[in-house]
Design a protein around this nucleic acid. Structure first.
Lengths: 90, 90
DNA sequence: TTTCATTTGTCCGTATGTATT
DNA sequence: AAATACATACGGACAAATGAA
């Protein structure tokens, strides 16, 4: 049975390594969706690199590459030692 | 003896690994200077990664990172299989 | 103050794939 | 076919910032 609440739970990040879309781009796309859909609100933290590693099995550098895409797009910002957050402007 | 011509020869790239400026940023700064000073003219190739490796001892990924900075700034562009070149606009 | 865990930042080495010459 | 060069990805290492204990 599926409750309404469950509909708001984020789907786990999943990467298809055989896709012709690069892994870092797949990750960036999914994170972008989570921000633009409001699943991650303004100033709210994105999943940490460690967390994404556990969920996806991707290498840290690949994950940083994906996150960097969002930062370059102005959709996220990083605070060293704290985490990466969705941009306040939304 | 130093001829006038030598004054136009590019200084070798040099990275200080102990600087608090990241290596990739030092490289980006030096390459940017070479472009803005006209030492590397519009549509002229930047030094290849192999060449920069020999001169600096930096890892390929670090060099690409530095070059990527210039690409993001619109100061350079890459042609796959050819190399990286100074932007035509200058 | 010190210690510890968490998180991001930087860097290296290596491997494979793709595109151009 | 071979050489050159970038793109992507992995794995590992160490440093720095933060916050909590």
């Amino acid at each position: 049975m599926i409750s309404m609440a469950n509909l708001l739970i984020m789907e786990p990040l999943a990467i298809d390594p055989h896709s012709d879309v690069p892994s870092y781009a797949q990750l960036a796309n999914q994170l972008r969706d989570m921000i633009s859909s409001g699943q991650i609100g303004p100033r709210q933290p994105l999943p940490s690199i460690t967390r994404i590693q556990q969920e996806t099995g991707l290498a840290a550098n690949t994950i940083r590459h994906g996150i960097q895409v969002l930062i370059d797009e102005g959709l996220a910002y990083t605070v060293p030692g704290r985490g990466t957050f969705a941009a306040p402007g939304e």
